[in-house]
Design a protein around this nucleic acid. Structure first.
Length: 425
RNA sequence: GUGGAUGUAGCUCAGUUGGUUAGAGUACCAGAUUGUGGCUCUGGGGGUCGCGGGUUCAACUCCCGUCAUCCACCCCA
């Protein structure tokens, strides 16, 4: 039996690891630059947390969760997103008694049982940020600015935030009512999906991709005019803040987002050239979430982005480089008697902080040189019977081919010094 | 969950209207007068042709099923 990685999962091989580390590095750097602290939550939670947090009638909860019973029969679920677990931790550790707002970020694998395709895996990596405790629209803008800054730092230019508001439980029903009124005569023309949305969640009709639905939905018009005064103020304050921060954005009334917990601000970032799954980040405000997860009424805003898709977008936009292993010193041993001496030298080099390696395949000197070259070793130290007798070592600079002799005693220090000065040039 | 495309060496792919021991490039290993890398040359190992049936004298090739991968729908990061 030959095993393969489970459907929708992938191995990140050594040659690609540098790309991942680079993105993860920038994520951590930018988040901390903006005052967010890392939090790590479990990879699985009680199923109930996601059902309550994300919403019972969302696609994620209805058909995409990796749910399993543990040995005591309790229903557990591999986290499909990061916000609900972080909200749970916020409540569990009484963070509402810490200085507000509490600004957290996370990064790690998420799981959704879906058919894989370009930019969509069953296990995928996501990072996200959450700010709890403040309802200030400036904070919403700060988060969009953080995302924008990160994309720029990763080399993703022409990234623009598409921003909208979806009101609050006070004013949204009026807009939903409006949508139903406008579309009541066109019900027959809508796709089956949208027909059921008409009753359950009419706003979702606005971001349907079906051409016919889009033309029909176009006559609904944006929510702006239906907002309550608080939501309208919040929305205009958000735009003022974005402008003050010089964050480019465009208003897009079709952005409505998929989770139940969103209120007021919602936004998305798209990339081009990475396939049909082109959302590389999105988020919004969720003032009701903490309460619905069992905590005190606490406002919050957040954002999440898929690392895998960022990588695709970086790849599509051009410069991405493969990792190459490099070695400070390869020690080539000739003859059985030299092997021990080579092992001793390799060990001392490593203790001095010089990356070093040797041959373990009983190769000829020629083959060892070839390998040193493939390992991209800067220098090769050659130790044979002659050198052993004389207590010396041949050292060769693989860049210019120059070779010289050093005394075996203190060779490690000399090699280290050479590499040091070579690096400084 | 639905639809389409594709499965031949580690990787990228050839393989003629079905016809003998299934090929190339690359990667890997070794060697090129026995102690020196990149370039070049030579040789070598490596494939139950995804899997299971069927048609046929004969199947990598045709048919059915199945599994996997990719792409798209749905939805999202």
């Amino acid at each position: 039996m030959r095993y393969s990685a489970p459907r929708g999962t992938q191995d990140v091989l050594p040659r690609d690891i540098e790309k991942w580390r680079r993105v993860e590095h920038h994520v951590r750097r930018v988040c901390e630059l903006y005052g967010y602290e890392e939090i790590r939550t479990p990879i699985f939670e009680q199923t109930e947390l996601f059902v309550r947090g994300i919403g019972e009638v969302t696609d994620i909860v209805e058909k995409e969760m990796y749910t399993f019973p543990d040995k005591r029969g309790r229903s557990m679920t591999l986290r499909p997103e990061g916000t609900a677990p972080v909200a749970r931790a916020f409540i569990e550790h009484n963070m509402f008694s810490e200085p507000q707002p509490v600004k957290l970020y996370y990064i790690g694998p998420m799981f959704r049982y879906e058919r894989p395709q370009a930019g969509r895996q069953r296990q995928f990596s996501q990072f996200g940020i959450e700010a709890f405790g403040s309802g200030d629209a400036v904070l919403d803008a700060e988060i969009i600015d953080l995302a924008y800054t990160l994309y720029r730092d990763l080399g993703l230019n022409n990234c623009i935030a598409r921003v909208n508001t979806i009101g609050c439980p006070a004013c949204r029903p009026r807009y939903n009512e409006h949508i139903r009124n406008v579309l009541s005569s066109d019900l027959e023309q809508l796709c089956p999906n949208c027909r059921s949305r008409y009753d359950r969640n009419p706003m979702r009709i606005l971001d349907c991709k079906t051409e016919s639905c889009r033309t029909i939905a176009a006559k609904v018009g944006p929510i702006w005019g239906f907002l309550c005064t608080e939501c309208a103020e919040h929305f205009s304050s958000l735009q003022d803040s974005l402008r003050a921060m010089s964050v480019p954005f465009e208003l897009d009334p079709t952005i409505v987002r998929g989770f139940d917990y969103y209120t007021r601000t919602v936004f998305e970032f798209m990339a081009s050239g990475i396939g049909a799954q082109d959302a590389i980040g999105g988020g919004g405000r969720y003032d009701g979430l903490i309460e619905s997860c069992g905590g005190p009424p606490t406002p919050g805003v957040g954002f999440a982005a898929g690392i895998d898709r960022l990588l695709l977008a970086i790849e599509a936009s051009g410069a991405a480089q493969e990792s190459q292993r490099t070695l400070g010193c390869f020690v080539a041993a000739v003859g059985e008697g030299a092997r021990l001496g080579a092992a001793r030298l390799v060990a001392s080099l490593r203790r001095l902080g010089v990356s070093a390696d040797m041959d373990y395949m009983d190769r000829s000197l020629r083959a060892q040189m070839r390998h040193a070259d493939r390992y991209r070793a800067r220098i090769v130290a050659i130790l044979g019977e002659d050198e052993l007798r004389a207590g010396t070592l041949q050292v060769k600079d693989m860049n210019d081919g120059k070779q010289w002799e050093v005394s075996l005693e203190g060779a490690a220090d000399e090699i280290r010094a050479f590499l040091q000065s070579a690096r400084e040039q």
